[in-house]
Amino acid sequence: MACINPDGTLTEVARRVLGAMARRGAAFAVPEDLAGETGVPLHRVRATVRETGRAKLIEDDGAGWRLTALGREALDLDEDDGELA
């Protein structure tokens, strides 16, 4: 799973993309907006959304994406490590 490191933490790009979703709370976000907010190229945001979606870290409503409880947990783990900006 390219969005998750071998030690179970999120990759740098996944952390930035999911972090942007976390700042939106319960609102759904589209990859174009996430690319604009994070500075991550759109093709990498789309890849991250696909991968983290498969890992059930995010969920969609058909138009956009937001964090699941599992996704918030993955970010919280990183926050505990003091790594989430």
């Binding site: 390219a2 969005c3 790009v13 093709h43 990498r44």
Partner: peptide, 12 residues
């Protein structure tokens, strides 16, 4: 740069 699909580049 991680796992990528050609589809990720649509519009580019």
């Amino acid at each position: 740069h991680g796992r990528l699909a050609l589809e990720d580049y649509r519009g580019t």
